[in-house]
Simulated assay, not measured.
Amino acid sequence: MLNIDKLIIGFDNALRTLMVPAQTLRAIPGKSLPENELTDGEKKKSCALMRVNHVGEICAQALYQGQALTAQNQEVQNALTQAAREETEHLAWTERRIAELGGRKSLLNPVWYGGSFAIGLVAGMLGDKWNLGFLAETEHQVEAHLAEHLQRLPYQDVKSRAIVAQMRVDEACHATMAISHGGIELPLPVKLAMKMSSKIMTHTAYWV
Rank of each mutant, 00 (worst) to 15 (best):
2 L>N: 14
5 D>H: 15
8 I>Y: 11
9 I>H: 07
11 F>C: 04
20 V>L: 12
21 P>L: 07
22 A>D: 03
23 Q>W: 15
24 T>L: 02
24 T>S: 08
25 L>Q: 09
26 R>Q: 04
28 I>D: 02
30 G>W: 15
31 K>S: 07
32 S>Y: 13
33 L>G: 05
41 G>S: 08
42 E>D: 06
42 E>W: 05
43 K>S: 03
43 K>N: 02
45 K>V: 05
45 K>E: 11
46 S>G: 01
47 C>I: 15
50 M>G: 02
51 R>C: 00
51 R>W: 00
52 V>W: 00
53 N>D: 12
58 I>T: 00
59 C>I: 14
59 C>G: 11
60 A>E: 12
60 A>N: 09
61 Q>V: 13
62 A>E: 07
64 Y>H: 08
65 Q>Y: 15
65 Q>A: 08
66 G>N: 07
66 G>F: 11
67 Q>K: 10
67 Q>S: 03
68 A>H: 06
71 A>K: 04
73 N>K: 10
76 V>K: 07
78 N>H: 12
79 A>S: 03
79 A>G: 01
79 A>I: 12
80 L>M: 09
81 T>I: 10
82 Q>L: 13
83 A>H: 02
83 A>I: 12
83 A>D: 00
84 A>G: 00
85 R>V: 11
86 E>V: 12
87 E>D: 08
90 H>F: 07
93 W>Y: 12
93 W>V: 03
93 W>R: 01
94 T>Y: 01
95 E>C: 01
96 R>E: 06
98 I>C: 04
100 E>H: 14
101 L>T: 09
102 G>A: 10
103 G>A: 08
107 L>H: 00
107 L>P: 00
111 V>A: 02
111 V>F: 12
115 G>L: 08
115 G>S: 03
117 F>K: 00
118 A>Q: 06
118 A>L: 13
118 A>P: 07
121 L>H: 04
122 V>P: 01
124 G>H: 05
124 G>C: 03
125 M>P: 05
125 M>N: 04
126 L>G: 04
128 D>W: 14
130 W>G: 00
131 N>S: 08
132 L>F: 13
132 L>M: 04
136 A>G: 04
138 T>Y: 10
138 T>S: 05
138 T>N: 06
139 E>P: 06
144 A>Q: 14
148 E>N: 12
148 E>F: 15
150 L>F: 15
151 Q>K: 14
151 Q>W: 14
152 R>E: 13
154 P>Y: 09
155 Y>F: 10
156 Q>T: 11
156 Q>V: 12
158 V>T: 11
161 R>A: 07
162 A>R: 06
167 M>Y: 09
168 R>H: 09
171 E>P: 09
171 E>N: 10
172 A>Y: 14
173 C>W: 15
176 T>E: 14
181 H>N: 08
181 H>L: 13
182 G>V: 11
183 G>E: 04
185 E>T: 12
185 E>H: 11
186 L>E: 08
187 P>R: 05
188 L>W: 15
193 A>W: 15
194 M>C: 10
198 S>N: 10
198 S>H: 11
199 K>N: 09
200 I>K: 06
201 M>R: 00
202 T>D: 08
207 W>Q: 02
207 W>G: 00
207 W>E: 01
